[in-house]
Nucleic acid binder design. Structure first.
Lengths: 382, 382
DNA sequence: CGCCGTTATTTCTGCCACGGAACTTACTCT
DNA sequence: AGAGTAAGTTCCGTGGCAGAAATAACGGCG
């Protein structure tokens, strides 16, 4: 991976790094508050922040609605979100979705492209074109993040990507050559989880879980403020967790596993099997919301299964929040009631289950996750 | 909690703390090796370790079987394990089990006492007597750790302990008054997990899980080298995780949940229901090992259920090792084959499941866990 | 309106932990 | 015995940080 350190980001010593990160993640913060958070003396903090202000990374935010307290008013510091931009691309089996974001992960442009061919070279060419189109829409991008469903090694090699039929594809190298930019790759669920962690519903929590539903089922767990990883992360381990003994059978022959109960195609298939008519996923949800018998039953079954999955995650990983994401996340909204009941039944009666938050669905949310991975490698300087 | 800092443990600066901890946890280490591990220059390390040697906490171990390499032989440093002793007590519903350990958690004495009455005052009196008996068997104890099945708050209050019928019992205060020593309390599974982490099968792993079977079913997860905690930790959340749709029913009415499949009493009950004869747990295991039909079936069912539980833990928490503990841990040895098969079936076929290690069963292992909590509060200075 | 209390921020000074270079020590190998 | 090697030691110099004191920017009060 080519990591040219761009202007505007001075080499940061340990504590300065923490300060910059704290401001990036937790919005405008006064120096006094910052000093408390990173456990430093106010004096040292002034010294530390000066170069950050000089370099243009931080600014003194105009604290319009000042707090009415005695004493000198605080002078909040904030990052200049527009000082850097990042491209994020999510690669699925048949299309690539891309966004451009600011340093704060606000999306400023989006685009997408079909993939004609799943061969690595063809995909890399299509993605490189997409990146070029995106960078034409926004200020120059500092780095590019790509995410793929599958096992991605730390060096950016795609070890295995079932939806694309890939194994051992040096994705970052191929894209870096074609785009001429720094490229990082990550597992799609890991990327979405990091986006949730830094800029989404996980912000401020040091333990939470993201469960994604869509073409597959994914799980990302953050504990002690760090994403859980391991040799098996990204292998879709959770996809075959058993949820419903009498449920349908998945492609691997598991009865009532997470994929058989929750993926968009299995829900479409169940409805088709019962009604004879073939409805797309979103239409199934609409029909269920409107009260149609078969869709309602299938969606409720899925909601209960999802509630059971969330209960298992809660009991094992002790998250403070449960976040539902992925392109099929609307399932959780439509089946909200049965999901919540099943979750509550699955945890200790004396424990209140963690709040469940449904993320905005859609493929561009995945792409934003990829952009966040780029932001992280840039900010953490790895 | 009364925390008198005893002689022999000098106030340690941040890095010195890390050095001392590294030596305590990872045995004799040369200065050069230590410098590498804590990422310090050799010069600084010599300076840091001098006061530790002077205070008698560390010694230069006599490296008898020296490595035959060119260059000046290394001079390993080691903690003086005997320099401090700790008492650990596990309180069950009807007895208290206690041990005395060194700073390295080696057990040097053990004792136990029945509990006549579950009332907090009666238990505190019995436990205080047990602590006195134990301290008579070994050098003066630096601190006392107590563990209970249930929800224990960070300040040492037992929020809830179902086996004792307690709620909101200020256990550490009661015991500190009666024993005149510093007392810390913790959840029993958390304590056992910490013992496994620092001095057991979890040593050197930054992610592992401990599953306990016995009177209940427990789960402790370490991720990023820290125990997962949360408001619900210690509530026995995992106990009602569903494992076998057609299984027996637990006290709370769940069919085939972890408690219904795995606890000693439920296994005894299942065997009694099928044979009419009442066999104690250990005898059931012996009979199953010898091939008796009904015990074999019940134990295999339990083994499969345990394998499924381990698969869920693996898929959600991504541990590097799975440790089985608790007084009923021998179950896992007797049902090893079916357990391993079910675990393998429950994780991705491309992923090798983590190794499963069975801890030595018995109540005194729980007590050692309590002692380790005392060691930790002492060493970490909290 | 000017003084006072309060809190944020800055300036300045000294300490001390750490790194780096140069040495010393204690081995093995030839 | 001498060369080679790696561990451990000594000794500065640097630099990051805390602490104290000064300064700034309010709101409130007589």
């Amino acid at each position: 991976m080519t990591t040219t350190r761009p202007a505007g980001w001075v080499p940061l010593t340990g504590q300065a790094h923490r300060v910059a990160l704290e401001v990036l993640l937790h919005g405008p913060l006064s120096r006094a508050e910052l000093a408390r958070r990173v456990e430093m003396s106010p004096g040292s903090l002034t010294r530390l922040t000066r170069p950050l202000l000089d370099s243009g990374l931080l600014v003194e935010a105009d604290d319009a609605g000042a707090d009415r307290r005695p004493g000198r008013p605080s002078q909040p510091l904030d990052v200049v979100a527009d000082s850097h931009h990042f491209v994020g691309v999510k690669i699925t089996g048949d299309a690539a979705y891309g966004v451009v974001t600011t340093l704060r992960a606000d999306v400023v442009a989006r685009a997408q492209a079909p993939l004609r061919d799943a061969a690595p070279e063809a995909v890399a060419a299509d993605v490189a074109d997409l990146v070029d189109r995106l960078t034409a829409l926004a200020p120059a991008a500092t780095a590019v993040g790509v995410s793929v469903g599958g096992h991605v090694l730390p060096d950016g090699t795609v070890r295995r990507a079932p939806f694309l039929g890939w194994s051992d594809v040096p994705l970052t190298r191929m894209l870096a050559e074609r785009t001429g930019r720094a490229v990082v790759a990550a597992n799609d669920v890991a990327a979405l989880t990091e986006a949730t962690h830094w800029f989404g519903e996980g912000r401020g929590h040091e333990a939470f879980a993201v469960v994604t539903v869509g073409a597959g089922v994914g799980l990302g767990v953050v504990a002690h403020d760090r994403l859980l990883t391991g040799p098996y992360a990204g292998l879709g381990l959770i996809g075959h967790h058993p949820l419903e003994p009498g449920g349908p059978v998945c492609s691997q022959g598991h009865r009532g596993c997470a994929e058989a109960m929750l993926t968009t195609w299995s829900i479409e298939r169940q409805v088709a099997a019962s009604t004879g008519a073939s409805l797309p996923f979103e239409a199934v949800l609409d029909a269920a919301a409107a009260g149609a018998t078969v869709p309602r039953r299938v969606v409720d079954d899925a909601g209960r299964a999802l509630g059971r999955l969330l209960a298992a995650v809660t009991n094992i990983a002790l998250p403070e929040v449960l976040v539902l994401g992925g392109e099929g996340a609307r399932l959780a909204s439509v089946a909200q009631r049965v999901l919540a009941d099943e979750l509550r039944a699955g945890v200790d009666p004396l424990a209140e289950p963690p709040p469940v938050v449904v993320q905005s669905p859609g493929f561009h949310e995945w792409a934003r996750g990829a952009a966040v991975v780029a932001i992280q490698t840039f900010v953490l300087g790895r």
